[in-house]
Design a protein around this nucleic acid. Structure first.
Length: 643
RNA sequence: GCCGAUGUAGCUCAGUUGGCAGAGCGCGUCCUUGGUAAGGACGAGGUCACCGGUUCAAUCCCGGUCAUCGGCUCCA
């Protein structure tokens, strides 16, 4: 009998019969492992437990503790979904069904769209199939046989997939789940050994999608679901979704009176007083930060002749996303979707010396992008917004130090909001402009800057812009969602197009390099993120109303106004609730408005020039002298304390 | 833009199998002057998103438009 030797992750070896399934390795280790096994990794390839071992190799058993297990598990759940749908709707055609970040989906061609009751029925059928302990059987079929099979079954999409994905292969891999019907899917796998391994899943939503994600192709019904190893984890996930719903900035923004929308200005926010205060707080904070970092705030026009957009390249590549208007003379004009071209014109309006470099422009003027109506979403995807935009014009040997300074600035700014984040470096793509040597130097400069700034990062190879490499920042909010906000992009192309120049020490003319950079990204979107991150309970330094004064009875109104005036004079944002309501009532409202401090004033406080402080987070803190409260609050604002 | 769902008072939502439009909160007036999460009474507030069709009659049925929401990137 032939044997093969497998090497386990701890370095030990086991002998199994040649051709024995991968599962035999798990069995040889322990019955418990054999029971927990979902798949195996042989060499560097993940395979089914039934995969025959025919040569010596490193082998690792995949259980639900393994990093790749959840994807595998969800992929198998997607197959279970397809099996259930095929069972309930025999005339359905199946598309593809991959795992995704939060679960999985499967696309189908159906006679009518799915309704919520269908989802319930499908989920019930999935549970039934799961309880039947049906094996996922992998078979290799001759390619033509598979094509014939799917043709006969009325699944032209599967046939198309086989023809594309398995071009030139003699055999293709199919998986079957044998129920009363047999569900057969063309799939490379691997899969869990049996439907009984799938313990906790839920179908979440249904939507339209297109075959291969292209609107020109056949429309399909997509069913989304999610799956976890245990009911507990699934429940936690569903709770997180609930939490996200509660924090939705559109809901909170309305409740807190920050902004609203109107059908006549789709994709553009109307900012109420408090929202404008919040907006200005952020805008001014960024102004201060950038000013200290050596930026000049500038303002460039919003409407430009199309000549500019032709020069910048937007006319040919971006026109459908621009709002176009006509001047009184009939000239075609376009509203800017980005600040860059205007700033280049500004830069080129003066002669520059190397002694001025780097030159840094910051700008917050409004931008307009004519986004398709279907993609608009609250403040996160709008047609009118402002960026904390900026461009640094640098000399080649200034890239590393400029980027390093920028990285430190970004670190400090995100820290002020208590946001954690990750950085990714995107390098030269396949389609690029310029010299490889220039790219190599640019990428090396970025890496050097990242390392000197002590910034952890990961490399996203080949994902840079065609005009230069970039660093992007994904922030993680309080409930674990990631949002891309900041960016640092090197640009070698724009200075060329706009013939930007500076005079060097050698008295010759040189081209600067442009660094596009933003930290919040869009102010509107960043505010939406902050609302959801803090669930509307902003730290004192950001809160649009920092304190509210609550007089107990009418005779305390004069003193209450005095308190408001004193605090406002010192720069705090204070409101007065002088309605004829009881304190309990006023407190409830202020609490729901998430106002950080409620200052109750009655006879005792008026007599002592004091305020009874109630903290939004900590409740009644007792009375303290007005001056004391004021200096404490100012210190809290200055320190940008987060709670 | 495409697919689906939704659109009733400022907000959250009932409702009408086609026959005068409802609640709670909020808002206004009055009473109450109250000490850490909702005091009471009365009242105002609606072109049932918009345009058209069917009908004796449309908020309801049909068609169109607009907006909002969920998707439209994840590759066997």
């Amino acid at each position: 009998m032939n044997h093969v030797t497998v090497t386990l992750p701890d370095g030990s070896t086991k002998q199994v019969e040649s051709g024995a399934p991968a599962k035999a390795v798990a069995e040889a280790i322990s019955p418990r492992l054999a029971d927990a096994a979902l798949a195996a990794v042989v060499g560097d390839r993940m395979v089914d437990l039934g995969y025959p071992l025919t040569q010596d190799a490193p082998v690792r058993i995949v259980t639900n503790k393994s990093p790749e297990a959840l994807e595998l598990y969800r992929h198998s759940t997607a197959h279970l979904l397809a099996a259930a749908v095929t069972n309930l709707f025999p005339r359905v055609q199946c598309g593809i069904g991959p795992p995704i970040d939060d679960g999985f989906f499967y696309d189908f061609v159906v006679e009518r769209p799915f309704v919520p009751e269908d989802l319930q029925a499908i989920e019930a059928k999935m549970k039934e199939l799961a309880s039947q302990d049906l094996p996922y059987q992998r078979q290799m079929w001759p390619r033509q046989e598979a094509i014939d099979f799917f043709t006969k079954r009325g699944e032209p999409l599967k046939v198309q997939l086989i023809e594309e994905k398995a071009a030139g292969q003699a055999e293709v891999s199919v998986y079957t789940i044998k129920d009363k019907d047999t569900f057969v899917d063309f799939c490379v796998g691997p899969h869990v050994p049996s439907t009984s391994k799938l313990k906790a899943f839920k179908l979440t939503t249904t939507s339209n999608a297109y075959w291969k994600g292209d609107a020109k192709n056949q429309p399909m019904q997509r069913v989304y679901g999610t799956a976890f190893f245990s009911q507990k984890e699934l429940d936690e996930h569903l709770t997180r979704l609930e939490e996200a719903k509660k924090r939705d900035h559109r809901k909170v923004g309305r409740e807190l009176g920050l902004f609203t929308f109107h059908p006549w200005a789709p994709g553009a926010g109307f900012w109420l007083g408090k929202g404008t205060t919040l907006y200005n707080t952020l805008a001014d904070y960024m102004r201060g930060r950038l000013n200290s970092a050596g930026y000049d705030e500038v303002k460039t026009p919003i409407v430009y002749n199309k000549a500019l957009w032709e020069l910048s390249g937007h006319w040919s590549h971006y026109r459908e996303n621009m709002f176009l208007v006509q001047s009184a003379d009939g000239d075609e004009m376009g509203l800017k979707a980005m600040n860059c071209p205007g700033q280049y014109l500004l830069f080129a309006s003066e002669k520059h010396s190397y002694k001025e470099m780097p030159i840094r422009y910051a700008e917050q003027t409004p931008l307009h992008r004519n986004e398709a109506s279907g993609v608009l979403a609250g403040l996160t995807r709008v047609r009118q917004f402002s960026q904390d935009d900026g461009h640094c014009f640098v000399m080649e040997d200034q890239i590393a130090s400029e980027v390093e300074a920028l990285l430190r600035l970004i670190q400090g700014i995100y820290a002020d909001f208590g946001l954690s984040y990750s950085a990714k470096l995107s390098t030269r793509p396949e389609k690029f402009i310029g010299e490889v040597a220039t790219w190599d130097h640019a990428e090396a400069s970025l890496k050097q800057a990242l390392e000197k700034a002590g910034q952890d990062y990961w490399i996203n190879a080949g994902d840079g812009a065609f005009y230069g490499p970039k660093i992007d920042f994904d922030i993680t909010d309080a409930i674990g969602r990631k949002w891309q906000c900041g960016t640092i992009q090197l640009d070698y192309v724009a200075p060329e197009r706009f013939q930007l120049e500076y005079v060097g020490a050698d008295n010759a003319v040189h081209r600067p390099i442009v660094i596009h950079r933003a930290i919040f990204g869009s102010l509107e979107r960043f505010i939406a993120i902050l609302i959801e991150h803090f669930a509307g309970a902003f730290p004192l330094w950001l809160a649009p109303v920092q304190a509210i004064v609550l007089p107990i009875a009418d005779r305390h109104q004069d003193y209450a106004r005095d308190v408001v005036a004193t605090l406002e004079a010192a720069g705090l944002k204070v409101e007065l609730d002088d309605r004829q309501e009881k304190v309990n009532y006023k407190i409830r409202e202020a609490q729901l408005q998430k106002i950080p401090y409620m200052l109750v004033v009655g006879d005792r406080e008026a007599a002592d020039r004091a305020v009874a402080v109630r903290s939004r987070a900590k409740g009644d803190l007792g009375a303290r002298a007005l001056d004391q409260f004021l200096s404490d609050a100012l210190a809290e604002v200055r320190s940008k304390a987060l709670s």
